[in-house]
Write a protein that binds this DNA or RNA. Structure first.
Lengths: 216, 216
DNA sequence: ACTTAAACCGACCGGCCAGTCTGTTCTCAT
DNA sequence: ATGAGAACAGACTGGCCGGTCGGTTTAAGT
């Protein structure tokens, strides 16, 4: 365990800058040497730790991408009763990091889905796993929102999850070049508009979660 | 004019299969020889007609992508008074071709934006032009919808355009692998939900377009 | 029939890149 | 101190790909 410390540290360094470059320039347009140059390491070091470029990337997905997706787009929604509010805040934060050109992992994911679709089935499997997890968590968040009286009982939870993921991934694509800050603002305002049509109508509109408490 | 007929025909063939392969495998992962093999043509033929692979791709954008974007995502919305209906129908049709794995040019565009972003400024300029045209046409469609009484006067036209483009490009990314038909259905149903919150409320809800006629 | 240019062929070049392999340096237990 | 394995260095290979270039075929005008 202790002796593997150095190993782990090097692998971690490689993966972090690997993800950074893969994100910036794309997987196929980033050579292993590009990453190694950034770290002043050699081919020997790389292939000592990883089997192949593909294996390297899959480990990046498992070790970095999955965790960051959780901390940025799943956990911020998981804990709270008022689903619509927490989704709004979560998207707001994620898009704000995007405006500052920092790594926005929801977009990293969408980028890679686009790059590998139809080209590398093995990697697509891993990416689709993450999408499924994201979707499942959104679905249960919507259901919790219904239960807690913040979302109309008649809305389709699956549909809402798909719609949220779609619009999020889409706005990130649109933010890459033209007026990211303005587009973020407009997007968020329309998202709130959409949420208005989702709120419970009529008698049961007061939230009963003081009675039932949180679900799960 | 007449003598250039053969030239035009060959260039057209190259561009059509070029777009097809670039879409399926990506620009950087498709070699010029891949396209040539498909057509039983040689390098000589290619570089006789085009300056470079990049030039070739830009001509594909101008000759094929732009036109198809017009016919699939712009003109179907342009002519009609009831903006929300025509957008719904337009998206419905476009996503249906996507379900059948045919070339859906809105997605082709979004794919290329993802592939070239940060990698090829020259090509990005051309792609951004198309995005701007699409956006402008959606904005004016929304404004027409307001004028004709199908859309609430208070909604932000720019915001709605951005939101529509986002969600469309996003759902296409989500449809590439998992349950495209189901996701299309869910998406369209949520889009209609969103549109509900966009309709005019209160007194002026009856459309007055019988009085004013169409705008433009 | 002959000329001429357009259209096309395909071998070749130079550069890049994933992966290999041999060898060197570092680390640490004994 | 030293042997042994872990960690790393870097030259090299084979394949691919964009682009070039000298040559051949096709077609059209005269």
């Amino acid at each position: 365990m202790d002796k593997t410390l150095k190993r782990m540290a090097t692998m971690q360094r490689m993966q972090v800058t690997g993800l950074e470059l893969f994100y910036k320039k794309g997987y196929y347009n980033t050579s292993v040497d590009d990453i190694l140059k950034e770290l002043s390491l050699s081919k020997g070091a790389f292939y000592y730790h990883f089997d192949s470029k593909e294996d390297f990337f899959i480990q990046i997905i498992e070790n970095l991408l999955v965790r960051k997706m959780y901390s940025m787009l799943i956990e911020p929604i998981e804990g709270h009763e008022n689903t619509l509010d927490s989704i709004t805040n979560c998207f707001e934060d994620a898009l704000e990091t995007a405006v500052h050109n920092e790594l926005d992992f929801g977009f990293v994911l969408s980028n890679f889905v686009n790059e590998f679709n139809g080209k590398n089935e093995k990697i697509m499997k891993h990416l689709n796993d993450i999408l499924r997890i994201w979707e499942a968590n959104l679905v249960s968040a919507v259901q919790r929102g219904k239960f807690n009286g913040f979302i109309d009982r008649h809305v389709d939870s699956e549909g809402m999850a798909v719609f949220l993921m779609s619009s999020y991934m889409g706005i990130r694509t649109l933010m890459v070049e033209t007026a990211p800050s303005a587009r973020k603002y407009r997007f968020m305002s329309q998202l709130r508009q959409y949420f208005k049509s989702i709120e419970p109508k009529g008698e049961n509109s007061l939230n009963p979660n003081a009675v039932f408490g949180n679900v799960n």
